[in-house]
Amino acid sequence: MIPPSSSDHGPVSSCSCGGLTLTGVSVHYRDFTALRDVNLTIPDCGITALVGPSGCGKSSLLNAINRLTDLIPGCRVGGSLRDGVGTELTDPTLDVLALRRRIGMVFQKPNPFPHSIRRNFEIPLREHGLPRARVREVMEKNLREVGLWDEVSSRLDESALKLSGGQQQRLCIARALALGPEVILFDEPCSALDPISSAVVEEHIAALRGRVTVVIVTHNLAQARRIADRVGVFWIRDGAGTIVEEGEVETVFGGAKDADAWRYLAGGAG
């Protein structure tokens, strides 16, 4: 377990141990195999985009990385997921609460707690041991990080549900950043937003490069191409999702070796 230190609440300036190595990862729901044999290296402090049609296990993979799969009855994860210092993330004895603090998640639908903006930070920060006196400072720093501070600083005690969809999603990003994670997983963070809000959120995700390891699932190929360093293409093979193409973003978009991936990327580009 990583002890909560007082200095790491917020994006850190230089990266360490934030990369992930996935070897033969599979995800099963009771009798159904959602994902099989995924091998992927996620570089430290880079942005990795996961693309592909719906239902080929991209979200399942994100859930497996920070163990949200534990919440789903009958869900099993196979294979090996290791972080930058070689800790096995699927280890059943791992302290998952500490793990989820190190590996944050932003969901497709913005999900602020139905409390005030301040409580949205206070609850997780206090849970992870930050003194009450420092909550405001960490909240302000991270709300500035996502460009929300000027919009909400006068109404921190109002319900977070009063914010627009785009603001709510930025609040969720700031809330995840406030715990000082090494990795943030984004599950289609823009797909529930209008185009303008979507562009703003995308800009703030892109700004995380070099400070936090980002893994983003997106259906927007143009977005993947704009912000990602590396890209993984998912497809259905033998009734289960798997990764069929992986590499530097320009290499993969320039000419994928896998036929399905090539057609998919070309269709999206054209």
Partner: peptide, 15 residues
């Protein structure tokens, strides 16, 4: 619906 029995919680370490 996703049932939310938190299997992971059973290995809680918090008093």
């Amino acid at each position: 619906m996703v049932s939310l029995f938190p299997a992971s919680f059973t290995r809680t370490r918090r008093p």
